[in-house]
């Protein structure tokens, strides 16, 4: 079933429809992404959260056609990327960029920063070296680095936070419309994390970007997202406007995630967490609702029937048979 009604009707730049991605591992199938549909409107930031292994990166890679989808469609600006090949796909891909979690590992250790950032320009056919140099300098200044101090140096001479700035510069140099940020601050310290989040927000405003922001930290996601999508074991649980979702989570898993965030206030005694166990394997996901093995509300229906995503509040959608808020 297609959820055409889902989410903000504003001009969607990215539309993912019923996407299924699987990996074959030793004769078994990993159900990494199962029937996920979502949209990202032009100019918005959609946050994507969920525990390790729930399929966030796989979804991000599938959007870029870096991992092969079993079925489903990825529409970018109305064009179906899953049906594109060769040069057409390559040209389309330039409009979408990716920023990874591990900034140091994603930079070639033997190339100088200037070359690393110019590389996408070379590939996309900017032949004039002077023009490349100018673009590289502009983008480095934009991310708060001094081009003259940075261009000639190697990645290992920089800290994690600086490397992430360099990665952001590399992602921006082709002037993309859409950036997929895959846990861009997870590997960074609290203080540096705030710098990079602020930088991403500035760049978004300055270059009119649309972002898919992947993270496992809900507070980080909330800080930058207009809407948030919650994933669990390959499926979408809930999607809605950030504030609404945090104030009134409809899915029991969203509520669990919110409850588990450590609050920096000693008066807020952490509620003894319910011993909810650990997520099952995506090789043999539970029948019906995949969250049912850890859900306090699970009943027979949750074992028998896969819950479909349906609206519970304006712009808020949940896939649960017994949501925490009643449909209005």
């Amino acid at each position: 079933m297609m959820q055409e009604t889902q989410q903000s009707q504003r001009d969607p730049l990215l539309k993912v429809q019923n996407l299924v991605v699987e990996y074959a591992v030793g004769g078994k199938t990993v159900h990494a992404v199962s029937d996920v549909s979502l949209q990202v409107a032009r100019g918005e930031t959609l946050g994507l959260v969920g525990e390790s292994g729930c399929g966030k990166s796989t979804l991000g890679c599938a959007v870029l056609q870096l991992s092969q989808a079993v079925s489903g469609r990825v529409l970018f600006d109305g064009h179906d990327l899953t049906a594109m090949h060769g040069d057409t796909l390559r040209r389309m891909r330039q409009r979408v960029q990716l920023i990874f979690q591990d900034p140091i590992a994603s930079l070639n250790p033997r190339r100088r920063i200037g070359e690393i950032i110019a590389e996408p320009l070379v590939i996309s056919g900017v032949k004039d070296p002077k023009k490349r140099q100018k673009l590289v300098c502009e983008v480095l200044s934009a991310v708060g680095l001094d081009p003259s101090l940075v261009i000639g140096r190697l990645p290992h001479e920089f800290s994690g936070g600086q490397c992430q700035r360099i990665c952001i510069a590399r992602a921006l140099v082709l002037n993309p419309e859409f950036i997929i940020c895959d846990e861009p601050v997870s590997a960074l310290d609290v203080s540096i994390r705030a710098q990079i989040l602020n930088l991403l927000e500035d760049m978004k405003a300055r270059f009119g970007l649309t972002l898919l922001f992947i993270a496992h930290d809900l507070a980080v996601v909330k800080a930058v997202s207009d809407r948030v999508a919650v994933m669990y074991l390959g499926r979408l649980c809930e999607v809605g406007p950030s504030e609404q979702l945090f104030a009134h989570p409809a899915h029991p898993y969203t509520a669990l995630l919110i409850e588990a965030i450590p609050v920096p206030d000693p008066d807020v005694r952490p509620a003894e967490s319910v011993p909810v166990g650990e997520p099952p394997s995506p090789i043999a996901p539970p029948s019906g609702c995949r969250f049912r093995t850890r859900c306090p509300r699970a009943d027979q229906r949750c074992i028998d029937e896969v819950p479909e995503l349906r609206p519970v509040a304006p712009d808020q959608y949940v896939a649960c048979h017994h949501p925490l808020i009643a449909a209005g």
Binding site: V190, A219, V220, K222, A223, V224, E243, I258, I261, V263
Partner: peptide
């Protein structure tokens, strides 16, 4: 510097 869960988005 810690993002707060009760802070407004953006």
């Amino acid at each position: 510097a810690i993002p707060k869960i009760d802070a407004a988005p953006h």
